[in-house]
Design a protein around this nucleic acid. Structure first.
Lengths: 334, 334
DNA sequence: TATCGTTGAGTTAACGATATATCGTTGAGT
DNA sequence: ACTCAACGATATATCGTTAACTCAACGATA
């Protein structure tokens, strides 16, 4: 618990000299700097971020808001952020919105954000109009990873485009009976991207003259277990699609398991295509449109740090890309 | 950006009176308190944690160290911690050790931990002897969630007991040809719990007079994809176990998929039993020994906060429990 | 009436760093 | 010989809050 004052006393220097030497501010003799750093090392000096923050107004923290931690996408973005920030002087303060009984108060507006963090990155978080209005008063930079939202600068993929590409793939293979395993949840209101992906699916399917029975539109809630249940139920019925388009790889994994369980073979009986590029998708031999959420996290982290350090903030970011990876889970209908 | 001084000036009071009124320190007239809180509300006052921290030495943050974010166990513990801390005045600073190319420098000892956080919770992190030695010098309380480690207070299950219970279950069903899908990783050195679970498996199996062919000991690395690959390979061979014991539910999910793919039925051809109690295990109809990592996180968070607030620190914690949930993935051998 | 404890509030000094303004030396330029 | 800039370092005020004292007023008690 050595302070800058102790180092100064030890060396017969003033506090300011020590402070500037440690920060690498120009205008200090090289050997003085060497002495100071040596003394700091010897005394085990660790700067007090609280004290520095009080003086500079910088806390050297970035607040990251996630809807929950147990979804691959949120997770991957967060990993990208932590990895990027680990190489900087900034720490991550984690705000997990996941609450047992359907959402807590989510007042990250008042006590949470102001004064505590230098910047905020939100991940796929849906905001109310009130919340968005509050954000306008924030004096800290903010970037949202996720679908485009009015009033926010966002980083993310084009949900319409990626789902259109996934659907187009099975259409081009010749499938005309298409099912959708969507991100809807029976309980909670649908997210923007779940809606976008459904619309893109419908539009692409109908444009190709495909059949989409309403009973083939499944609510998977971006969860493996819901996917298993929904797909198991659907394929008990005699009226079945020949291809299943999934809004996430996680749901596709559940779907493929449920199909095997029902005695149906992938892709001979049912083709499965999906969105994400999950690290497990290769082992499942799953055809998927790969996006890179970790890269989106890295991008968001870099941009927000640059902005905190005074760089000119861009007014928007280019749409993140994706890539169709064709594997063994899709084939022409038999 | 109203300060305590502005409120004081506004009301003709002193800074200390305002400070004490806001903190609820006794010795302030009730109507004075009311006036102060009203003024604070009106001016949009938000306390500066940096300034308070500088004065008190408290940062109101808890550092949480995780090996990575994309494993169910780490995730669940972290969720338990964030949920618990969300109701307190403490924030979570996240230290994710996951690095692209096999581990960064991990110097959370120096700049990372000291001065920045009031307490530390580590999740299933393996420490070197040097690191453990450094921890002794920490002046902040520390709790590790994970297997018992010398020199650390730990919260966790008994790995030996839980794996013994899982193995005993299939033994009692009559299985004598047992395979293990363990947590080993082909690349990285094995974790303590992977070793413990393997030993418990072997001991229980051999004590029951079961056969364990060395080729039935699979390295699943606690990952779904590795599990799929390992199990697919094993069951191509003519010499097969009748029951597969998995060191985690995630690996069991992969195993069940691979078994279906190989044309083998669960449990008719192969029984599968596992450890974890993952939220998806019900949909997979997987027999598993349920532990509760989220509860472990909650426990750790509560204990560490109590300690930070001055409570007497317990020298150890009771071992977390588990419970065998028998579902449809296990049956007597046919 | 003198004393005392209690209550409610104010004064003042940290906490550990940074920012601004300043100061003495030295060397170069005219 | 004199001015002036550059250099290296210092003194001091400041950031917003808390903690340790101090103090005045009041009613109760001896």
């Amino acid at each position: 618990m050595a302070t800058i004052a102790q180092i100064a006393a030890e060396l017969g220097l003033s506090k300011s000299t020590v402070s500037r030497a440690l920060r690498g501010v120009p205008g200090i003799a090289a050997d003085t700097v060497a002495q100071v750093t040596a003394a700091a090392d010897r005394l085990g000096y660790v700067p007090s971020i609280a004290a520095a923050g009080l003086s500079t107004g910088r806390n050297h923290t970035v607040g990251v808001v996630v809807p929950s931690l147990n979804r691959w996408f949120y997770n991957s973005v967060l990993t990208g952020i932590t990895r990027t920030l680990a190489d900087t002087a900034y720490d991550v303060i984690l705000y997990d919105l996941d609450r047992p009984h359907g959402g807590g108060t989510r007042t990250f507006s008042r006590a949470l954000l102001r004064q505590r963090v230098d910047a905020v990155i939100t991940v796929a978080t849906v905001f109310s109009a009130d919340e968005l209005a509050e954000f306008a008063h924030f004096d800290v930079p903010m970037i949202a990873v996720g679908p485009p939202t009015a009033g926010l600068r966002t980083i993310g993929i084009d949900d319409i485009a990626i789902m259109s590409a996934a659907t187009a793939h099975v259409v081009e293979l010749g499938h005309r009976r298409l099912g959708l395993l969507g991100g809807f949840d029976a309980e909670t209101p649908p997210h923007r991207n779940a809606i976008d992906r459904e619309q893109a699916f419908m539009r692409t399917a109908l444009a190709a003259g495909a059949t989409v029975d309403p009973s083939w539109m499944l609510a998977g809630g971006y969860r493996v277990d819901s996917a298993i249940r929904a797909v198991s139920e659907l394929f008990r019925s005699p009226s079945r699609p020949t291809a299943l388009v999934c809004a996430s790889d996680d749901m596709a994994f559940g779907a493929m398991y449920a199909l095997q369980l029902a005695g149906l073979r992938v892709p001979e009986d049912v083709s499965v295509v999906s969105i994400d590029g999950h690290e497990y998708s290769e082992a499942y031999d799953l055809t998927t449109c790969r996006q890179d959420p970790e890269a989106q996290g890295v991008l968001a982290a870099r941009a927000i740090i640059a902005e905190v350090e005074g760089a000119e903030p861009p007014s928007s970011f280019p749409t993140a890309g994706f890539e169709l990876i064709v594997r063994g889970s899709t084939a022409p209908p038999s």
